[in-house]
Design a protein around this nucleic acid. Structure first.
Lengths: 205, 205
DNA sequence: TAGATTGTTAATCGATTAACAATC
DNA sequence: TAGATTGTTAATCGATTAACAATC
């Protein structure tokens, strides 16, 4: 691997490559080419070669990439060759869905707790979890050593919950609340706002 | 509005601006500046001015932008100054959450039906809906004139459901299945893959 | 008027693509 | 060997930023 600063836009494509490679692996394939992978994910072969070559020489001229090996390398690069504990804040329908989400398995994540500030929800079972009191969020984040939270609270609460979580040591937030968050430079945020995603497509309709 | 081809990356920022403006409006604010809006959403003032000026002259020197007016214009541009009917395919936890999702209201969307191919789920109530048989998906899409679907089916089923929906006239897909879709050039896809979003952040941890 | 802020131009910066030597 | 495909360079293309005249 290489210590040069890698553009974030490249980092953003790696999970897409990884997802496609894991799919190929599930289908029993052993090798692929930048051409083939590019067709799968809708990205040019040149770009795929350029992207992965930022981190090393993982392919072989003439034959392409070993799927198994490239998966291993991408998992190392993305640091998902381990399991990250994640907490969910907000026990509404979306929090519920995330707490039970099966597709985190094998992709590097595990939900370990779900919180809500509604006392009437605290203690309620959600899948294998019991909803915890959001009052204890910071304490529990520290206790569990969690670095990643998923926010499914109302927009009005998102910033204050984010502040609290960051204070407790969180470094990455997957924000489902439809609001932009202000966070320190060393904290990452990704946004999932279904309405915004849809609005990005209606322009073309 | 202007007929020049607008880069997709600009289109992608407009929903973010709109979301922030609607928030300001809810707070009772009347005007804002590119500077202020930029701080809200974490984008430079110059870029915001450049982006919105692609579509017209919506601001006033010295005073900035009328929040109300800019909201109206952005809604026109994004074509969300109307309500789009949307169907959900896949009645698992995620489909359930989307069918009940309150935040579509006032942002241009309305869920009108939810489908599953599991006969044991067909007819089950989900919020105000009753799960419909995925066998009738194409027919119902045509009947309802739906142009947008949200896919929450397993990765293995996503491509074939997408093909079917496109065949029935769908032009935009919000894909929650963790797989890249191959679609014709006139069909838009947006991806929501929580694991991929998280993997994009673990790189930095 | 003085101060503020837009819309736009030109300059800079960064990302993508095309091409090809190297080599499996 | 001949064919295929990588990794990388240089060229192209596109996006962002800085600066400022226009003007509210």
């Amino acid at each position: 691997m290489n210590a040069r600063k890698i553009p974030d836009i490249i980092i953003g494509r790696l999970p897409v490559y990884l997802r496609a490679l894991q799919r190929m692996s599930d289908l029993g394939l052993k090798t692929t080419s930048s051409q083939e992978l590019g067709e799968q994910v809708g990205i040019s072969a040149a770009q795929i070669r350029k992207d992965v070559s930022q981190f090393g020489e993982f392919g072989k001229q003439g034959t392409g990439y070993s799927i198994e090996y490239l998966i291993e390398k991408l998992r190392e690069i993305l640091k998902v060759n381990r399991i990250w504990d994640v907490v969910v804040v907000g026990a509404g329908d979306m929090g519920h869905a995330l707490a039970n989400y099966q597709a985190f398995h094998n992709r590097g994540f595990r939900v370990v707790a779900i919180f809500d500030n509604d006392k009437s929800k605290v203690g309620a079972p959600i899948g294998k979890f019991s909803v915890e009191d959001a009052e204890n969020l910071a304490e529990r984040i520290r206790e569990l050593g969690v670095k990643i939270v998923m926010l499914t609270v109302p927009a009005s609460a998102a910033q204050s919950v984010a502040d609290l979580a960051i204070q407790a040591g969180v470094k990455a937030i997957l924000n489902y609340a439809p609001v932009s968050l202000n966070v320190p430079g060393n904290v990452k945020v990704q946004y999932i706002d279904p309405s915004a995603h849809l609005q990005r497509m209606t322009y073309y309709l």
